[in-house]
Design a protein around this nucleic acid. Sequence first.
DNA 1: GGTCTTAACCATCACGTTATAGTTTGGGGT
DNA 2: ACCCCAAACTATAACGTGATGGTTAAGACC
Lengths: 129, 129
Amino acid sequence: MKLKISEVAELANVTKRTVDYYTNQGLLRAERSASNYRYYDREAVDQIGVIERLKDEKLSLAEIKKRLKVDQAENADIEELKMKIQDLEMDVSDIMNILEKKGLTKETIRNNLSHESISLMQTLLLLLI
Amino acid sequence: MKLKISEVAELANVTKRTVDYYTNQGLLRAERSASNYRYYDREAVDQIGVIERLKDEKLSLAEIKKRLKVDQAENADIEELKMKIQDLEMDVSDIMNILEKKGLTKETIRNNLSHESISLMQTLLLLLI
DNA sequence: GGTCTTAACCATCACGTTATAGTTTGGGGT
DNA sequence: ACCCCAAACTATAACGTGATGGTTAAGACC
């Protein structure tokens, strides 16, 4: 039998809000009923235990999520990477097209691009060149 | 002169958290400094006033956002650009995540990334920095 | 005027909280 | 057994909160 959010929360010794948050962040998976209720299976309780332990080791939820993804998706990394890079190429050329057609300013662009993204791109280029 | 978040908040009679939230939800636009600080122009203060008034009429922020978007539909280009750039950001961070997780080599990456794409990214960065 | 320190500020994370609106369920009556 | 209802549960929105880790700006000192 599947568990509702408060049952999961109690069994895992966390609050409902925590289960809610983890679910929204994609660290926990839940079925949805027709009425949009979440239903978890028992495995979720253990999963929360793992998450809490990793948190004690100062990992952020984002990092924990990555680690969990690795455990479960182990493989198709390079295929994924290939596809991501294709997407990236398309995005970049789209952007450049827009930049050429419209006379948008440097500021307009920078205001819409997060600084993390810029530094990520820089890092990527540094790795490659 | 541009305003910082707490200045906007005080002038508009809302909390910083509210300004933060509206900004994240895309109801308010802010420039970002190199250090990632948000800088608003005074128009933002009035904008918040409009939002609060619409909230009194029981509109949700999502609905308010749509209404504001219509008002400034002239900015379709920028919206398009924004979305493209968001896609780009996601792609880049995805790629970096994979790069961090796996010990993929420079060669593996370069083999999957076209030469044109690299130079496009370089151009983009040159425009911005 | 330059440098150095420190208090005040800022961004983000990981939830907490309150309000609203919809859902499920254990009775109670018939 | 079937219908009705209130109590308990649920999802989501819109912030609030405390911790953490950077940033900026205003003096103090040289």
